[in-house]
Simulated scan of single mutants.
Amino acid sequence: MSLQFRLGYNDQKVVEDFLSRSTAATSAIVLDPKATTRQRYAAEAAAAAGVDVFWDPATELLSYEGYELEKFPMWAGRRFDVAELATSLSARSALVEHTIATHPEGVTHLTAPHFYVESAHSAALNVDLAEATVRQADRPVRAVLVIKHGYARANAADSADMYVSAGVRQIELQLSPFGGEDESLTKIANGFAIAQAFTDAGLHVTLGHSGNLGQVAVALGHASAYSVGVGMLEHVNHKTQVNRRKNPPAERLDEDGNRLRQGGGAGVYLPALAFTATPNLAKKLLEHSDLRLRIGCRIAKCGNDVRGPLLDPRDHYLHSRDAEMGRMMEQPAGWRSTSELERLHRALILRDRINKDYVAPGDPPIKTRTLDSLIVDIERAQAAS
C-alpha cells in the first residue's frame, strides 16, 4: 500500500525537499518525460529515502502529431506509427532499445514503451513491447497501460493474464476517461473491478492519476498503490490530453509585454474536503474565519501561518497527501474501508455546508457526485464481506 507522485517539469526542488524529510507513505516518484537532467537531485533524494524512481517515456503521446513534441527525449523526428510497429519486429526492437537507452541515470525501474489501448491490436502491441523490455532489462520493469475504459471493462482478465505471461510484475493502470469529481457509481464500480482483475492476476497495480478514487481503491484492496501529480493529475482523459498538445496555447503577455508562462498551476488540496481546489477558490475558503480552522493544515510550514496551504500549494499537496495515506496504512486491513468511509462522509457533510452557506451567488458549487458514489461503493463492499 503506497502513494506515488508524478513530477511536473518544475517540481524537482519541492519534491527534493519533501523527500529529504521523513515520508509516511510515498513509495515512488515518476520523473517528467522532458526533465530528466533537471530532476537529477530529486532522484538522488528519493534514492537516499529508499523511494523508487521511475521515468515516463511518454511514447503514447508521441504517436500523434502535436505541439513541441521535439522537446521529448524519445522524439525520433516523426511520430511513432502504431500500425508499422505492430507489423515490424525490427521497428519494435529499435523502439525498446531506444527507450532503455534514454532512461536517465538514477532510475530504479525501467518503464516499457507503451501506446493507448482501445483494441485487441493495440493491446497485443503493448504486451509485446513490455515483454521485449523485460527480456533486455538489467533492472525491474514496470508497464504502463493507458487504456480505454470500455475496452478494459470487457477484457480486463485477459489483458492482465497477457502481462503476467510476458513477465511483467508491476503495472500502472490508467483508465481513460476516469476520475474527477463527477463520476457515477456504475463507472467507479466498473473501474474498481478492472483494477481487481489485474490484482487477482498477481500484478502489483498502481491506479494511475486517480486522486480519491485511487485512495479508496487501495483501501478496498483493488490496487496496491495509486498515483497523482503534484497538485494535479487526479484523473485520466487521454483524448483531452492529446488534443491539448495539437495546437500552441494563445500567447499571454503581462503589462510590460513579457510572455507569461502557459498552463495551469498546482491546485490546493483541502484534506477536510477531500478536494483539490483552484487557487482562487481555496483562497476564498481559507480566508473565511468560519472555515479556516476546519479546512486548514497544521503540518510543516502550513502550521506557521494562517494562510496555511496557500503559502506553497505544491509542498502542502505532497505532505498532506502523504500524511493522509500514512494514517490509512496504520489501520489494520479490516478497518481501512471504514476509515475511508468516515473520511468521505466528513468531507461530504462539509462540502454540502459550504455549497449551502458559503458559495457566492453565481459561483459553481463544489461537486459531490464522486464522493456520493464512493460512499455507496464502500458500503456495498462492506455489506458483501
Results as ranks from 00 to 15, higher is better:
Arg259Cys: 07
Arg261Val: 15
Gly263Thr: 05
Gly263Asn: 05
Gly264Lys: 13
Gly264Tyr: 08
Ala266Thr: 02
Gly267Asp: 05
Val268Ser: 04
Val268Tyr: 00
Tyr269Pro: 00
Tyr269Lys: 01
Pro271Thr: 04
Ala272His: 05
Ala272Cys: 06
Leu273Val: 03
Ala274Leu: 12
Ala274Ser: 15
Thr276His: 05
Thr276Gly: 11
Thr278Glu: 10
Pro279Asn: 10
Asn280Ala: 15
Leu281Ser: 08
Lys283Ile: 01
Lys283Ala: 15
Lys284Ile: 07
Leu285Pro: 00
Leu285Met: 13
Leu286Glu: 03
Glu287Val: 07
Glu287Gly: 13
His288Gln: 10
Ser289Pro: 06
Ser289Thr: 13
Asp290Gln: 11
Asp290Gly: 02
Asp290Met: 06
Leu291Arg: 06
Arg292Ile: 00
Leu293Gly: 15
Arg294Cys: 05
Arg294Ser: 11
Ile295Ser: 10
Ile299Ala: 11
Ala300Gly: 05
Lys301Thr: 11
Lys301His: 14
Asn304Val: 04
Asp305Ser: 12
Val306Glu: 11
Arg307Thr: 13
Gly308Tyr: 03
Gly308Phe: 06
Pro309Arg: 12
Leu311Ile: 15
Pro313Lys: 08
His316Lys: 03
Tyr317Asp: 10
His319Ser: 02
His319Asn: 02
Arg321Trp: 12
Arg321Ser: 13
Ala323Arg: 12
Met325Cys: 05
Met329Thr: 06
Met329Tyr: 00
Gln331Glu: 12
Gln331Leu: 15
Gln331Gly: 03
Ala333Pro: 00
Gly334His: 04
Gly334Gln: 06
Arg336Ser: 03
Thr338Tyr: 11
Ser339Pro: 07
Glu340Ile: 00
Glu340Trp: 07
Leu341Lys: 09
Glu342Leu: 14
Glu342Val: 12
Glu342Trp: 09
Arg343Ala: 12
Leu344Ser: 04
Leu344Phe: 14
Arg346Ala: 15
Arg346Glu: 15
Arg346Leu: 11
Arg346Met: 11
Ala347Asn: 08
Ala347Tyr: 05
Ala347Cys: 06
Leu348Asn: 12
Ile349Arg: 13
Leu350Thr: 02
Arg351His: 03
